[in-house]
Design a protein around this nucleic acid. Structure first.
Lengths: 111, 111
DNA sequence: CTAATGATTCGATGATACTAGAAATGTCGA
DNA sequence: TCGACATTTCTAGTATCATCGAATCATTAG
């Protein structure tokens, strides 16, 4: 995952409502949930939810498919794996993000 | 890490400049970098950089300390570990999301 | 004290995000 | 075709974010 895509994904998750939607879809599993069920579960107006779903979809974090009159949204687990991988590699010292794994590349500063 | 803190952290990283700053600080290691050096490395006006550093600091992702006239900023690795942990637990189906034994084996284009 | 330096805060401006009702679109059953 | 339903798109209003020069604060040396 490139930094540009990572920013898109981070931006998509950086909102209470969207994070709640995504977590709900993760719990729902690969089968996903129709928009109406999400709006109902989160007590959100349909138009507001649609706005957030479009945001998540544009960022590549969820997928959309139709089932009759309902639009089914599902979490894209591969995208999430890619994001966590990006953060681990680029924002955790390149090593595993384990707490005690402080990078040993100490640069000596000539002050 | 709670969802509220996670949203703050995600929001802080969901910006090109701030993500670049954070990655630079991760590369710099625990010793951190003075604000001037960051501004110089990223070719950013001092006041703009200060705005973004304050944002990252408020989100708990970086720490600030003074060294003479310079303010040293350093990545807070524990906070990042917490964020990755939150994402893994809450947004990856509860199971391990990142390849648990593959830190950085894959090829990626230099960005 | 005064000057110089590193960095932040202030202030104004433009851009973007969020919300939610109303209207429009797509789909199905009769 | 018609009506009902699920959802999106349109629209407008409000709120928050991003930028960056100028002014200010904090620190050190002389």
């Amino acid at each position: 995952m490139k930094a540009e895509a990572a920013v898109d994904a981070l931006s998509a998750l950086a909102n209470d409502h969207r994070l709640a939607v995504f977590r709900l879809l993760v719990q729902a599993g690969p089968e996903g949930k129709p928009a109406g069920a999400i709006a109902d579960a989160l007590a959100m107006p349909a138009s507001s939810l649609s706005f957030h779903l479009a945001h998540l979809n544009r960022a590549g974090l969820i997928t959309q498919s139709r089932d009759g009159r309902s639009l089914i949204y599902a979490a894209d687990f591969a995208a999430m794996t890619g994001l966590v991988g990006f953060l681990t590699e680029n924002c955790c010292g390149g090593a595993s993000c384990a707490p005690s794994a402080a990078p040993s590349q100490k640069k000596r500063k000539a002050s």
